[in-house]
Nucleic acid binder design. Sequence first.
DNA 1: CAAACTGTATTAAGAATAATAGTACACTTA
DNA 2: TAAGTGTACTATTATTCTTAATACAGTTTG
Lengths: 129, 129
Amino acid sequence: MFELDMRSRKPIYEQLVEKLKELIINEVLKPDEQLPSVRTLAQQLTINPNTIQKAYRELEIQSFIYSIKGKGSFVNPQTQKKDNLKIAAVKHELEKLVLEAFYLGVSVEELLKFIEEIDVSKRGGDKID
Amino acid sequence: MFELDMRSRKPIYEQLVEKLKELIINEVLKPDEQLPSVRTLAQQLTINPNTIQKAYRELEIQSFIYSIKGKGSFVNPQTQKKDNLKIAAVKHELEKLVLEAFYLGVSVEELLKFIEEIDVSKRGGDKID
DNA sequence: CAAACTGTATTAAGAATAATAGTACACTTA
DNA sequence: TAAGTGTACTATTATTCTTAATACAGTTTG
């Protein structure tokens, strides 16, 4: 279900958050569908349950999921589906531009920073890094 | 001269590398211009000289600068100037597309990952993260 | 009801990395 | 010669992520 990079600088709980976000937004995980329990997923991924719970807590804060004690964690149905075809088209255009930027000598790092700055300027302060 | 984010997950030596790269590529630092000494810059930024040296070493490995014992560290003139106008135009187009992607519900994280994957697929394995 | 499952919380310890501190050596320049 | 340069090395501190081991409250199921 997941591929985690244990050697990344990015914490695995944060990788989990991102992966699950994608699965939810793209409706691989359906609205109100139950997520694996913290202990089950921990066993599957052979990582500590606390790490899973940290990810779930973060996802709940960002209202991607909701959790009910004794029952489980579920996909928040408010998260509306994206227009995937449109997104694919945009990504295709994006890739062309990015490659052009690379060709012009713009570094990956500079590009990433640029993207992040677009983000924060339009949506308010986000996570550090 | 620099703005460092001491609270970022990104190490400050790595932030230094990126900032200096930009200054060099954009020729804010001219070819063969001498960089501040490790001790001077450390004092200015109130960080440890070892951290500066780590950044300089990395920049030398990536051949953005060259260092001569007893003399100093200098900008490698091989680093050619970029076409800044062209880059600005590309960035402008890029910003529009990125905002469109945001509007479609693509997360910043997903976008950053997408950019990074373009990079690695076209230029071989880079740094983790 | 009882057992087994859920989420949640807490404390402690381990591991890894970044950053600092301090010192030293070789080289260049004024 | 003195001061400034890059470079190297060890040790220590600090931070963060992860694990470990419990514990408690609620739900579900036999």
